[in-house]
Amino acid sequence: MTPEEVLTHVTEIFKTVLKKEQLHLTPATTAADVDGWDSLTHVMLIDAVENHYKIKFKLNEVIKFNNIGDLCACILKKLPA
């Protein structure tokens, strides 16, 4: 899977969880850029991403996500080659 495909999937997941029809995510997007992405919805987003890809994140990994790019990179690392 390519980084672009992961970004597309993640955008769709964010749209569903945050209930937003219009949402444009880039690797540089942070929580501050997205209305509704806060400490309350953050774990729901992580859970939705895990369920979609059938992967599990560690707390140490999640804490270090500074932007969407970090999240996508971690997903790619966990997906089978």
């Binding site: 400490s39 953050h42 774990v43 729901m44 992580i46 859970d47 895990e50 707390l59 999640v62 804490i63």
Partner: peptide, 10 residues
């Protein structure tokens, strides 16, 4: 809050 909610994210 983060460790607890992360542990119970399911």
């Amino acid at each position: 809050y983060m460790p607890i909610s992360f542990g119970k994210r399911s």
